[in-house]
Design a binder for these strands. Structure first.
Lengths: 214, 214
DNA sequence: TTAACTTTCAAACAGTCGTTTGAATTTGAC
DNA sequence: GTCAAATTCAAACGACTGTTTGAAAGTTAA
């Protein structure tokens, strides 16, 4: 098991499947599309991943794992090296993690962000059960750090702001523009992660630091 | 054509299809699921809407049309009744339109927001071509109003902020939480649109009014 | 070379897909 | 009640779905 040829085949399946899942969704992508684009036999997916569901899980975890590790490392660095930190620094830690993933071709570049953006709109049974308990640490640490930086906000409001922040970030990096549905030419160009980050930062920073509701 | 029974049947198909498309996506919903849940014959969809694609377009436009009209009316009211307006008032106009749709059962309630949130992540060929030119007016008017309220920002930056705003809004109302993928229990409760709006407003307002990038 | 094991392959499995057909039924106007 | 149009229906269309099978080919170590 897992000798030379096998790794190459399963990896090629993962690469192709990731792109197709992002573009057409899970239900919209067939096994035959995947295997023929990857140049492998149709039975290879079941051989290596057990099922189409198993393939999706493998595709997702290949990106989620390093992202979670990276994001956790960033927030740990921030909270241990300084006695105090600002909300902006917390946002920056999260965004840096996303950007390092998005600009590293080894991690699939921006495909990973699009996969995430798609996954949380398109509820896959695989994602509902197995992943949350595995990556709960990530969310907990960021919420705690935000809460420490914004002591005037209730826990509920901290959660909401984290939600707004991540929505804006992921959709910006993934290039998901709601108003694209209402306008022919795209308003913004999400190709350059560096530019996206520059545009995002003042918006996020001000949003996080804004006074409590009503 | 279009006598009593027909309207009832096609409407029931639209209602059921909308819910299923939102829950399972376009590719993930079959004609037989739709027609059996609606209690109509399988051939009824093709009879009334021509095809599955035609059904999706009908489902989408039934909501997009009144929303666009409402949103345009709100921004027109704001820009004509006052010589000057703030960015917050522009955001409020947009949000009020979304909320009036979301709280009106005749417009499907929050289903409409979820449909929108899903549609711009899941690119449907129907949406790519026909809709943008039809609803371009909406986006153009809001961008112009924002630009007037924030003269210190470049056009590019105005576009980005509108993008961030709509991303945060739609995902908040639709209950699409990225971090739900990483955490078992949901962080926030998106059931009450009034509460969502209260939490959103300070964040959005501060984000829009923040100083220009770098 | 033999042997055990991994990987690939073409073919077929039972279901489901969206769509079409032509006949049966219902409807509304005269 | 008659007639034509609108609507519903069961059945079937060919194409495609994810998965399984058992044999063929390839790989590795003794």
């Amino acid at each position: 098991m897992e000798t030379g040829k096998a790794l190459e085949t399963s990896q090629r399946i993962l690469d192709v499947a990731e792109l197709l899942f992002v573009e057409h969704g899970f239900a919209g992508t067939s096994m035959r599309q995947i295997t023929s684009a990857a140049g492998v036999n149709i039975a290879a997916v079941n051989y290596y991943f057990g099922s189409k569901d198993g393939l999706f899980q493998a595709v997702f975890e290949r990106r989620a794992e390093p992202f979670a590790q990276l994001a956790i490392r960033k927030i740990d660095e921030l909270t241990t090296n300084k006695n105090d930190h600002s909300a902006i620094e917390v946002a920056q830690a999260f965004m840096t993690a996303a950007m390092e993933m998005g600009s590293n071709p080894e991690y699939g570049g921006l495909v990973f962000v699009k996969l995430l953006a798609r996954s949380y709109v398109e509820p896959n049974p695989v994602l509902k059960e197995k992943l949350p308990q595995r990556y709960g640490e990530l969310t907990r640490k960021y919420l705690a750090a935000l809460s420490h930086a914004l002591p005037h906000l209730s826990n509920a409001e901290i959660n909401w702001r984290f939600h707004f922040m991540t929505s804006a970030m992921f959709n910006a990096f993934a290039g998901n523009n709601v108003m694209r549905l209402f306008m022919a030419q795209p308003l913004v160009n999400a190709r350059d992660p560096q530019l996206v980050a520059e545009m995002l930062m003042p918006f996020i920073a001000a949003g996080l630091n804004s006074p409590a509701a009503q």
